[in-house]
Amino acid sequence: MLLWIIQRDLLLAMRRQSDVLTTLFFFIIVVSLFPLSVGPEMNMLRTMAPGIVWVAALLASMLSLGRMFSSDYLDGTLEQMLLSPHSLFLLVLGKALAHWLVTGVPLVLMAPILGIQYDLPADALFVLTASLLLGTPILSLIGAIGAALTLGLRGGGVLVSLLVLPLYIPVLIFGSGAVEASSAGLGYGAHFSLLGAFLLVAVAFSPWATASSLRISME
């Protein structure tokens, strides 16, 4: 069931390559903008790199939240999903994971390359990529709640960011904090365990909240 919906969404995403690439290009452009604005001075960029990459990943995944349910909402498949005997919890979990695969994973793969742009040492690059790998699913899961709530609203795109950004802050803090802690030699163990905890809580609760929001929006 879960695999079916993930496979279906991936298939849909692959048919429209542009969605996948737009998020990725947005991420690349935002990350490359900062050196232009802040100046090419290397060690400042190195200290700011984790924060910039994380904020860019946050914005990129949030931009594509709107599309998570809207295409199904418009052509009515979302209503069929709500009526289907399968548990909506799994359906929504599948959709969020599919969204993560489409938007989160490319960011994670691209992060090391962009890290080189900021002259990050190898171990910091590894920690950055690992923290993104751990963090981006949380972004998709929490984002799913916002996407479900603002389904079919005019100006929904901006509204999603208003709803979801405050909830992203702990993930942002520990995600970029992990890289700084590891480069400062404090070790990233604590940060990763917390990110892992957030991930588990998100996987357990956010689909339930998204499902109830979908029922509310679809009434």
Partner: peptide
């Protein structure tokens, strides 16, 4: 919808 976002908050 407000209730959901308030509870999540």
């Amino acid at each position: 919808a407000g209730a959901v976002i308030a509870l999540v908050g």
